[in-house]
Nucleic acid binder design. Structure first.
Lengths: 178, 178
DNA sequence: CAAGACATGTAACTGGTTACATGATTCG
DNA sequence: CGAATCATGTAACCAGTTACATGTCTTG
Protein backbone atom coordinates (compact mmCIF):
# COMPACT_ATOMS: atom_id res chain seq x y z
CA UNK A 1 0.00 0.00 0.00
CA UNK A 2 2.55 2.55 -1.05
CA UNK A 3 1.52 3.77 -4.44
CA UNK A 4 -0.69 6.29 -2.64
CA UNK A 5 2.33 7.55 -0.81
CA UNK A 6 4.48 7.67 -3.91
CA UNK A 7 1.74 9.82 -5.49
CA UNK A 8 1.57 12.02 -2.40
CA UNK A 9 5.34 12.53 -2.53
CA UNK A 10 5.12 13.45 -6.18
CA UNK A 11 2.17 15.80 -5.69
CA UNK A 12 3.84 17.42 -2.69
CA UNK A 13 6.61 18.45 -5.05
CA UNK A 14 4.25 19.76 -7.71
CA UNK A 15 0.56 19.48 -8.60
CA UNK A 16 -0.14 17.39 -11.67
CA UNK A 17 -2.67 15.61 -13.84
CA UNK A 18 -2.92 11.84 -13.84
CA UNK A 19 -1.11 11.88 -17.13
CA UNK A 20 1.75 13.94 -15.69
CA UNK A 21 2.04 11.54 -12.78
CA UNK A 22 2.15 8.60 -15.16
CA UNK A 23 5.09 10.19 -16.94
CA UNK A 24 6.85 10.87 -13.66
CA UNK A 25 6.34 7.21 -12.83
CA UNK A 26 8.05 6.40 -16.11
CA UNK A 27 11.03 8.49 -15.06
CA UNK A 28 12.27 9.70 -11.64
CA UNK A 29 9.88 8.26 -9.06
CA UNK A 30 9.31 5.23 -11.25
CA UNK A 31 12.83 3.99 -10.64
CA UNK A 32 11.65 3.06 -7.16
CA UNK A 33 7.98 2.41 -7.75
CA UNK A 34 6.45 1.41 -11.07
CA UNK A 35 2.86 2.27 -11.95
CA UNK A 36 0.74 2.43 -15.09
CA UNK A 37 -1.59 5.29 -15.93
CA UNK A 38 -4.63 3.05 -15.45
CA UNK A 39 -3.63 2.29 -11.91
CA UNK A 40 -2.80 5.91 -11.20
CA UNK A 41 -6.24 7.11 -12.32
CA UNK A 42 -7.91 4.45 -10.21
CA UNK A 43 -5.89 5.31 -7.11
CA UNK A 44 -6.29 9.07 -7.63
CA UNK A 45 -10.07 8.64 -7.64
CA UNK A 46 -9.91 6.74 -4.36
CA UNK A 47 -7.55 9.30 -2.82
CA UNK A 48 -9.88 12.09 -3.90
CA UNK A 49 -12.75 10.37 -2.07
CA UNK A 50 -10.56 9.99 0.99
CA UNK A 51 -9.72 13.68 0.81
CA UNK A 52 -5.96 13.20 0.45
CA UNK A 53 -5.94 15.08 -2.84
CA UNK A 54 -8.24 17.54 -4.54
CA UNK A 55 -8.71 18.14 -8.23
CA UNK A 56 -9.42 21.20 -10.27
CA UNK A 57 -11.15 20.48 -13.53
CA UNK A 58 -10.49 22.36 -16.73
CA UNK A 59 -13.41 22.19 -19.14
CA UNK A 60 -12.56 20.73 -22.49
CA UNK A 61 -14.82 20.24 -25.49
CA UNK A 62 -15.59 16.57 -24.93
CA UNK A 63 -16.99 14.62 -22.04
CA UNK A 64 -13.82 14.15 -20.01
CA UNK A 65 -12.39 17.19 -18.26
CA UNK A 66 -8.71 17.63 -17.59
CA UNK A 67 -8.12 17.37 -13.85
CA UNK A 68 -5.18 18.86 -12.06
CA UNK A 69 -4.59 17.19 -8.74
CA UNK A 70 -2.94 18.74 -5.71
CA UNK A 71 -2.23 17.47 -2.23
CA UNK A 72 -4.57 18.53 0.60
CA UNK A 73 -3.80 19.10 4.29
CA UNK A 74 -5.09 15.64 5.27
CA UNK A 75 -2.98 14.25 2.42
CA UNK A 76 0.14 15.97 3.72
CA UNK A 77 -0.70 14.74 7.21
CA UNK A 78 -1.07 11.19 5.94
CA UNK A 79 2.24 11.43 4.11
CA UNK A 80 3.93 12.58 7.30
CA UNK A 81 2.28 9.78 9.28
CA UNK A 82 3.48 7.27 6.71
CA UNK A 83 7.07 8.52 6.60
CA UNK A 84 7.16 8.37 10.38
CA UNK A 85 5.92 4.81 10.66
CA UNK A 86 8.43 2.01 10.10
CA UNK A 87 8.47 0.59 6.59
CA UNK A 88 7.95 -3.13 6.21
CA UNK A 89 10.92 -4.85 4.60
CA UNK A 90 10.52 -5.57 0.90
CA UNK A 91 9.30 -9.01 -0.04
CA UNK A 92 12.01 -10.57 -2.12
CA UNK A 93 10.59 -11.91 -5.38
CA UNK A 94 13.15 -12.88 -7.91
CA UNK A 95 12.26 -14.95 -10.95
CA UNK A 96 15.93 -15.21 -11.67
CA UNK A 97 16.79 -16.72 -8.28
CA UNK A 98 13.96 -19.25 -8.58
CA UNK A 99 15.25 -20.12 -12.03
CA UNK A 100 18.74 -20.63 -10.66
CA UNK A 101 17.38 -22.86 -7.91
CA UNK A 102 15.65 -24.97 -10.53
CA UNK A 103 18.78 -24.96 -12.67
CA UNK A 104 18.47 -27.30 -15.64
CA UNK A 105 19.90 -25.64 -18.67
CA UNK A 106 23.12 -23.56 -18.56
CA UNK A 107 22.49 -21.95 -21.92
CA UNK A 108 19.17 -20.41 -20.91
CA UNK A 109 20.61 -19.19 -17.63
CA UNK A 110 23.57 -17.69 -19.44
CA UNK A 111 21.30 -15.93 -21.89
CA UNK A 112 19.10 -14.61 -19.13
CA UNK A 113 22.05 -13.43 -17.06
CA UNK A 114 23.50 -11.64 -20.08
CA UNK A 115 20.27 -9.75 -20.76
CA UNK A 116 19.89 -8.80 -17.12
CA UNK A 117 23.50 -7.72 -16.86
CA UNK A 118 23.01 -5.43 -19.81
CA UNK A 119 19.87 -3.83 -18.45
CA UNK A 120 21.36 -3.33 -14.98
CA UNK A 121 24.42 -1.73 -16.55
CA UNK A 122 22.20 0.65 -18.48
CA UNK A 123 20.33 1.45 -15.31
CA UNK A 124 23.58 2.06 -13.45
CA UNK A 125 24.90 4.28 -16.23
CA UNK A 126 21.70 6.33 -16.08
CA UNK A 127 21.86 6.70 -12.29
CA UNK A 128 25.53 7.63 -12.35
CA UNK A 129 24.88 10.19 -15.03
CA UNK A 130 22.14 11.70 -12.84
CA UNK A 131 24.49 11.70 -9.89
CA UNK A 132 27.20 13.57 -11.79
CA UNK A 133 24.69 16.02 -13.19
CA UNK A 134 22.66 16.84 -10.10
CA UNK A 135 25.05 16.15 -7.26
CA UNK A 136 28.59 16.84 -8.52
CA UNK A 137 29.73 17.74 -5.03
CA UNK A 138 28.16 15.55 -2.32
CA UNK A 139 29.30 17.96 0.36
CA UNK A 140 27.20 20.71 -1.11
CA UNK A 141 23.86 18.95 -1.30
CA UNK A 142 21.03 21.02 0.09
CA UNK A 143 19.00 19.53 2.91
CA UNK A 144 15.93 19.52 0.70
CA UNK A 145 17.69 17.37 -1.91
CA UNK A 146 19.32 14.95 0.51
CA UNK A 147 16.49 12.40 0.37
CA UNK A 148 16.38 12.26 -3.40
CA UNK A 149 20.17 11.90 -3.44
CA UNK A 150 20.05 9.00 -1.00
CA UNK A 151 17.31 7.30 -3.02
CA UNK A 152 19.51 7.62 -6.10
CA UNK A 153 22.45 6.18 -4.17
CA UNK A 154 20.22 3.21 -3.33
CA UNK A 155 19.50 2.70 -6.99
CA UNK A 156 23.23 2.74 -7.70
CA UNK A 157 24.18 0.35 -4.92
CA UNK A 158 21.44 -2.16 -5.72
CA UNK A 159 22.22 -2.04 -9.44
CA UNK A 160 25.86 -2.75 -8.59
CA UNK A 161 24.79 -5.70 -6.47
CA UNK A 162 22.75 -7.11 -9.33
CA UNK A 163 25.59 -6.55 -11.78
CA UNK A 164 28.01 -8.38 -9.51
CA UNK A 165 25.53 -11.24 -9.26
CA UNK A 166 25.10 -11.58 -13.02
CA UNK A 167 28.84 -11.41 -13.56
CA UNK A 168 29.42 -14.13 -11.01
CA UNK A 169 26.77 -16.33 -12.60
CA UNK A 170 28.36 -15.91 -16.02
CA UNK A 171 31.87 -16.54 -14.72
CA UNK A 172 30.72 -19.68 -12.92
CA UNK A 173 28.88 -21.01 -15.97
CA UNK A 174 31.85 -20.38 -18.20
CA UNK A 175 34.24 -22.13 -15.83
CA UNK A 176 31.81 -25.07 -15.84
CA UNK A 177 32.07 -25.32 -19.60
CA UNK A 178 35.72 -26.28 -19.52
CA UNK B 1 3.31 -15.57 -12.50
CA UNK B 2 6.15 -17.42 -10.90
CA UNK B 3 4.83 -18.93 -7.72
CA UNK B 4 3.72 -21.92 -9.82
CA UNK B 5 7.27 -22.31 -10.97
CA UNK B 6 8.73 -21.91 -7.52
CA UNK B 7 6.38 -24.69 -6.41
CA UNK B 8 7.38 -26.84 -9.37
CA UNK B 9 11.06 -26.35 -8.51
CA UNK B 10 10.38 -27.35 -4.93
CA UNK B 11 8.28 -30.38 -5.88
CA UNK B 12 10.87 -31.48 -8.44
CA UNK B 13 13.28 -31.76 -5.54
CA UNK B 14 10.86 -33.67 -3.34
CA UNK B 15 7.11 -34.38 -3.17
CA UNK B 16 5.31 -32.56 -0.38
CA UNK B 17 2.04 -31.53 1.19
CA UNK B 18 0.83 -27.94 0.96
CA UNK B 19 1.91 -27.53 4.52
CA UNK B 20 5.42 -28.77 3.77
CA UNK B 21 5.66 -26.35 0.86
CA UNK B 22 4.54 -23.50 3.09
CA UNK B 23 7.39 -24.33 5.46
CA UNK B 24 9.87 -24.49 2.60
CA UNK B 25 8.62 -21.07 1.56
CA UNK B 26 9.40 -19.88 5.06
CA UNK B 27 12.95 -21.17 4.67
CA UNK B 28 15.10 -21.95 1.63
CA UNK B 29 12.98 -21.16 -1.43
CA UNK B 30 11.23 -18.40 0.47
CA UNK B 31 14.39 -16.33 0.52
CA UNK B 32 13.71 -15.66 -3.14
CA UNK B 33 9.96 -15.98 -3.32
CA UNK B 34 7.59 -15.43 -0.40
CA UNK B 35 4.24 -17.18 -0.21
CA UNK B 36 1.65 -17.90 2.46
CA UNK B 37 0.00 -21.26 2.99
CA UNK B 38 -3.36 -19.88 1.81
CA UNK B 39 -1.89 -18.88 -1.49
CA UNK B 40 -0.05 -22.14 -1.86
CA UNK B 41 -3.23 -24.20 -1.38
CA UNK B 42 -5.07 -22.06 -3.89
CA UNK B 43 -2.32 -22.35 -6.49
CA UNK B 44 -1.85 -26.08 -5.89
CA UNK B 45 -5.53 -26.66 -6.63
CA UNK B 46 -5.22 -24.75 -9.90
CA UNK B 47 -2.03 -26.60 -10.83
CA UNK B 48 -3.74 -29.91 -10.11
CA UNK B 49 -6.53 -29.00 -12.53
CA UNK B 50 -3.94 -28.03 -15.13
CA UNK B 51 -2.23 -31.36 -14.62
CA UNK B 52 1.13 -29.95 -13.57
CA UNK B 53 0.99 -31.77 -10.25
CA UNK B 54 -0.91 -34.76 -8.90
CA UNK B 55 -1.93 -35.48 -5.36
CA UNK B 56 -2.23 -38.65 -3.35
CA UNK B 57 -4.70 -38.41 -0.51
CA UNK B 58 -4.22 -40.06 2.84
CA UNK B 59 -7.47 -40.67 4.70
CA UNK B 60 -7.69 -39.02 8.04
CA UNK B 61 -10.50 -39.13 10.56
CA UNK B 62 -12.05 -35.79 9.73
CA UNK B 63 -13.36 -34.28 6.55
CA UNK B 64 -10.09 -33.02 5.07
CA UNK B 65 -7.63 -35.55 3.77
CA UNK B 66 -3.90 -35.03 3.81
CA UNK B 67 -2.68 -34.63 0.24
CA UNK B 68 0.84 -35.28 -0.89
CA UNK B 69 1.64 -33.50 -4.12
CA UNK B 70 4.19 -34.52 -6.70
CA UNK B 71 5.22 -33.12 -10.02
CA UNK B 72 3.84 -34.73 -13.21
CA UNK B 73 5.44 -35.02 -16.65
CA UNK B 74 3.53 -32.02 -18.01
CA UNK B 75 4.61 -30.13 -14.88
CA UNK B 76 8.26 -30.96 -15.48
CA UNK B 77 7.83 -29.95 -19.11
CA UNK B 78 6.31 -26.64 -18.10
CA UNK B 79 9.16 -26.03 -15.65
CA UNK B 80 11.66 -26.65 -18.41
CA UNK B 81 9.77 -24.36 -20.78
CA UNK B 82 9.74 -21.65 -18.12
CA UNK B 83 13.44 -21.91 -17.29
CA UNK B 84 14.22 -21.68 -20.98
CA UNK B 85 12.20 -18.55 -21.62
CA UNK B 86 13.73 -15.20 -20.69
CA UNK B 87 12.72 -13.85 -17.29
CA UNK B 88 11.22 -10.38 -17.12
CA UNK B 89 13.30 -7.99 -15.04
CA UNK B 90 12.03 -7.44 -11.51
CA UNK B 91 9.86 -4.41 -10.96
CA UNK B 92 11.60 -2.29 -8.39
CA UNK B 93 9.27 -1.46 -5.53
CA UNK B 94 10.92 0.07 -2.54
CA UNK B 95 8.95 1.74 0.23
CA UNK B 96 12.22 2.91 1.65
CA UNK B 97 13.30 4.70 -1.55
CA UNK B 98 9.91 6.41 -1.82
CA UNK B 99 10.25 7.47 1.79
CA UNK B 100 13.68 8.90 1.10
CA UNK B 101 12.34 10.80 -1.90
CA UNK B 102 9.65 12.31 0.31
CA UNK B 103 12.24 13.02 3.01
CA UNK B 104 10.74 15.09 5.81
CA UNK B 105 11.94 13.77 9.10
CA UNK B 106 15.55 12.62 9.63
CA UNK B 107 14.73 10.82 12.84
CA UNK B 108 12.19 8.48 11.25
CA UNK B 109 14.50 7.79 8.33
CA UNK B 110 17.33 7.07 10.71
CA UNK B 111 15.16 4.70 12.71
CA UNK B 112 13.97 2.93 9.61
CA UNK B 113 17.47 2.63 8.17
CA UNK B 114 18.72 1.20 11.46
CA UNK B 115 16.02 -1.48 11.55
CA UNK B 116 16.59 -2.39 7.92
CA UNK B 117 20.35 -2.49 8.38
CA UNK B 118 19.91 -4.89 11.25
CA UNK B 119 17.60 -7.23 9.34
CA UNK B 120 19.82 -7.23 6.25
CA UNK B 121 22.82 -8.02 8.42
CA UNK B 122 20.96 -10.94 9.94
CA UNK B 123 20.00 -12.11 6.48
CA UNK B 124 23.60 -11.82 5.30
CA UNK B 125 24.90 -13.70 8.33
CA UNK B 126 22.42 -16.49 7.64
CA UNK B 127 23.39 -16.71 3.97
CA UNK B 128 27.10 -16.66 4.74
CA UNK B 129 26.62 -19.37 7.31
CA UNK B 130 24.83 -21.48 4.68
CA UNK B 131 27.62 -20.79 2.24
CA UNK B 132 30.32 -21.93 4.67
CA UNK B 133 28.30 -24.98 5.63
CA UNK B 134 27.17 -26.23 2.24
CA UNK B 135 29.81 -24.89 -0.13
CA UNK B 136 33.08 -24.66 1.81
CA UNK B 137 35.05 -25.15 -1.39
CA UNK B 138 33.50 -23.36 -4.41
CA UNK B 139 35.72 -25.34 -6.75
CA UNK B 140 34.17 -28.60 -5.61
CA UNK B 141 30.51 -27.75 -6.11
CA UNK B 142 28.63 -30.45 -7.94
CA UNK B 143 26.86 -29.48 -11.15
CA UNK B 144 23.52 -30.31 -9.56
CA UNK B 145 24.15 -27.84 -6.73
CA UNK B 146 25.54 -25.04 -8.85
CA UNK B 147 22.18 -23.29 -9.32
CA UNK B 148 21.31 -23.29 -5.64
CA UNK B 149 24.79 -21.97 -4.89
CA UNK B 150 24.41 -19.11 -7.39
CA UNK B 151 20.99 -18.24 -5.98
CA UNK B 152 22.57 -18.06 -2.54
CA UNK B 153 25.35 -15.85 -3.91
CA UNK B 154 22.64 -13.54 -5.23
CA UNK B 155 21.12 -13.31 -1.79
CA UNK B 156 24.53 -12.42 -0.39
CA UNK B 157 25.34 -9.79 -3.01
CA UNK B 158 21.95 -8.11 -2.78
CA UNK B 159 22.00 -8.12 1.01
CA UNK B 160 25.44 -6.47 0.84
CA UNK B 161 24.06 -3.82 -1.50
CA UNK B 162 21.22 -3.08 0.87
CA UNK B 163 23.58 -2.94 3.83
CA UNK B 164 25.84 -0.48 2.02
CA UNK B 165 22.79 1.64 1.23
CA UNK B 166 21.57 1.75 4.84
CA UNK B 167 25.07 2.55 6.08
CA UNK B 168 25.39 5.39 3.63
CA UNK B 169 22.01 6.78 4.63
CA UNK B 170 22.97 6.68 8.30
CA UNK B 171 26.38 8.25 7.67
CA UNK B 172 24.82 11.03 5.63
CA UNK B 173 22.16 11.75 8.24
CA UNK B 174 24.71 11.85 11.01
CA UNK B 175 26.96 14.23 9.11
CA UNK B 176 23.89 16.44 8.60
CA UNK B 177 23.34 16.63 12.31
CA UNK B 178 26.57 18.50 12.92
C1' DC C 1 -4.65 18.22 -42.06
C1' DA C 2 -2.14 14.45 -40.24
C1' DA C 3 0.80 12.67 -36.74
C1' DG C 4 2.06 12.51 -32.23
C1' DA C 5 1.73 13.93 -27.73
C1' DC C 6 -1.80 15.00 -24.25
C1' DA C 7 -5.53 13.26 -21.52
C1' DT C 8 -8.92 10.07 -19.09
C1' DG C 9 -10.90 6.27 -18.32
C1' DT C 10 -13.57 1.04 -18.10
C1' DA C 11 -13.45 -3.99 -17.83
C1' DA C 12 -11.73 -8.29 -17.07
C1' DC C 13 -8.45 -10.64 -14.91
C1' DT C 14 -4.33 -12.36 -12.19
C1' DG C 15 -1.76 -12.25 -8.06
C1' DG C 16 -1.39 -11.73 -3.29
C1' DT C 17 -2.82 -10.50 1.70
C1' DT C 18 -5.56 -10.73 5.92
C1' DA C 19 -8.89 -12.60 8.68
C1' DC C 20 -11.35 -16.46 9.91
C1' DA C 21 -12.32 -21.47 10.63
C1' DT C 22 -11.59 -26.26 11.67
C1' DG C 23 -9.80 -30.41 13.09
C1' DA C 24 -5.82 -34.31 13.71
C1' DT C 25 -1.54 -35.85 15.56
C1' DT C 26 2.30 -35.90 18.59
C1' DC C 27 4.88 -35.34 22.64
C1' DG C 28 5.93 -34.04 27.22
C1' DC D 1 -4.58 -33.74 29.00
C1' DG D 2 -2.88 -29.56 27.19
C1' DA D 3 0.16 -27.23 24.07
C1' DA D 4 2.51 -27.20 19.90
C1' DT D 5 2.75 -28.61 15.47
C1' DC D 6 0.61 -30.69 11.52
C1' DA D 7 -2.83 -29.98 8.08
C1' DT D 8 -6.38 -27.81 4.87
C1' DG D 9 -9.08 -24.62 3.54
C1' DT D 10 -12.90 -20.28 2.57
C1' DA D 11 -14.04 -15.38 2.06
C1' DA D 12 -13.30 -10.79 1.47
C1' DC D 13 -10.41 -7.72 -0.05
C1' DC D 14 -6.46 -4.99 -1.96
C1' DA D 15 -2.96 -4.36 -5.61
C1' DG D 16 -1.51 -4.58 -10.15
C1' DT D 17 -1.67 -5.91 -15.30
C1' DT D 18 -3.50 -6.13 -19.95
C1' DA D 19 -6.62 -5.02 -23.33
C1' DC D 20 -9.71 -1.86 -25.00
C1' DA D 21 -11.88 2.76 -25.87
C1' DT D 22 -12.26 7.63 -26.69
C1' DG D 23 -11.35 12.14 -27.64
C1' DT D 24 -8.30 16.90 -27.54
C1' DC D 25 -4.50 19.83 -28.47
C1' DT D 26 -0.30 21.23 -30.72
C1' DT D 27 2.91 21.57 -34.25
C1' DG D 28 5.06 20.95 -38.63
Amino acid sequence: MAIEHAILVSLSEKSATGYDLARRFDASIGHFWRATHQQIYKVLARMDEQGWVKSEATKRGGRLDKKTYSITDPGAKELLRWTQSPSSPEVMRSDFAVKLRGFVDSDSIREDATTRLESYREMLAFYEESERKFYPDPAKIKDSARGAYLALRGGILLAQGNIAWCEEVLAELNSERR
